[in-house]
Design a protein around this nucleic acid. Structure first.
Lengths: 171, 171
DNA sequence: TTATATTTTTAGTACTTACTGAAAGTTCGA
DNA sequence: TCGAACTTTCAGTAAGTACTAAAAATATAA
């Protein structure tokens, strides 16, 4: 496999991954394309490379900027906007994790917590209500700890203090 | 909010979450319904509760059994099959995490690793190829460590040895 | 066995989401 | 301040996914 093929393959793989995890395919592909490119690319170059429309490119580029995964870049004397991707894998992971958490996990947990405030007045319900509360509490707890763990992992690579911990986990 | 409302709300929330993370809505809703139910439910009860068709119910119930999130149950003298959900939140998380990892993360990483075997013969490509390799290696490394970390987290609640670690991360 | 209760499969349809093409809007140099 | 270069928005459409209804298959009690 040569470099060009490998890059194409990467774009495809990354796109598929995105789709599987609820990020749209094109957004992931644009991201992959920018990841594999040495220089920043313009909207037109991206459109050509992935054969997508201007509108589509624009939408997804904006979303990526929004997420903080890519940045706009301007060249002196040119109006066209170029885009460049953050290429450090850990930084990427951190961004993606924290964005998804902010957008999806936090609201979920808040929503579940609201459920815990049910009035279990009726005596008949008592036992059933207890079971339900226990279920929801369990899920909230797992959610919280999962998030904490995520934070930990994302710190490990940076921090030499946490690094030794990794040994404990390596299979 | 009374218990019934809370349960309905839970089913809806869980469904939404599923959709956001690439699991189909109905499957998540059926799961939620079984989670909130004290007794096992039959296909017909599930159909009625969620107003979905038999085919849909059947398909998604099978998928849930396949994942190991629910189990079939038979009552003596009855042909109807009943379903019961695993209700321990940690166990659920463990199952979901390991299934998704097996189905999606593992193949991804294998696919990316294949990319690392590119023939960087052309001298012109040398530097570019190195950059690309570095990118992919980084991603693979993050993927691996992420998975290890997941394993760790899922052990924490069970193991009193790991428990103190969590304090280090709490916001 | 056979009749019947139940589950499974599937072809077609409905729903949802993503994408296009074109029009409208914006920015900036001349 | 005008017009070219470029970006953004959006209504309509296409593609993808999930769902239904009904037929086929299977299992069990009699």
């Amino acid at each position: 496999m040569n470099l060009e093929q490998a890059k194409r393959h990467f774009v495809e793989t990354w796109g598929r991954l995105g789709a599987e995890w609820g990020i749209n395919r094109t957004m992931a592909q644009i991201h992959a394309l920018l990841l594999t490119s040495n220089e920043p690319l313009s909207t037109d170059q991206i459109m050509a490379e992935l054969t997508i429309s201007r509108g589509n490119a624009n939408m997804n580029l904006r979303a990526l900027v929004d997420w903080g995964l890519i940045v706009r870049e301007n060249r002196p004397g040119e109006r066209k906007e170029y885009f460049r991707a953050e290429k450090n894998a850990w930084e990427m992971a951190r961004i993606i994790a924290s964005q998804r958490r902010k957008r999806e996990l936090d609201p979920l947990i808040r929503s579940l917590e609201a459920l815990l405030e049910l009035e279990d007045n009726k005596k008949a319900d008592k036992q059933e209500a207890a079971a339900f509360t226990q279920l929801v509490e369990g899920i909230v707890r797992v959610g919280r700890q999962g998030m904490s763990a995520l934070d930990l992992v994302l710190k490990i690579d940076q921090s030499s203090f946490f690094k030794p911990l990794l040994r404990l986990v390596k299979r």
